[in-house]
């Protein structure tokens, strides 16, 4: 269970940083720095750079993602920005525009 949840009707304008799982259902603008899992759920809108261990995108994300372990773009996701992660999963149906850096 995620410890931090940004609900669907919430707008956060600024920086979110934390050491625990973060689930975004609403809108976040600014920056997200997390030590754990970051999940941008379906219906969420994020205009922010995201840093996390695992990053899962199911909603709409505009910004650069740095995942220390894994980045996953779910089928309904829409991402514009650069992706940096050792493992990247792009599901069939996901929309993505940006650079991919897998540290090869």
């Amino acid at each position: 269970m995620a410890n931090t949840v940004i609900g669907s009707s919430i707008v956060v304008d600024g920086e979110i940083s934390g050491e625990e799982p973060l689930v975004i259902l609403g809108t976040v603008k600014g920056k997200v720095v997390a030590a754990g899992h970051v999940s941008v759920e379906a219906g969420a809108t994020v205009e922010a750079d995201i840093e996390g261990q695992n990053v899962t995108v199911g909603g709409k994300l505009t910004g650069n993602v740095t995942a220390r372990e894994r980045l996953e773009l779910r089928p309904e996701s829409k991402m514009i920005g650069n992706a940096k992660a050792p493992r990247i999963v792009v599901a069939d149906g996901a929309t993505f525009k940006g650079n991919v850096d897998m540290d090869v």
Binding site: N3, G7, I10, G14, S17, G18
Partner: peptide, 26 residues
Amino acid sequence: DKETVIGVETRVSGEIRGGEDLVVKG
């Protein structure tokens, strides 16, 4: 229920606005 939680280990600097309950633990 519809609820937003800022967890114990989480910090938000900036603005939070919206139409649901917010619980701040961090």
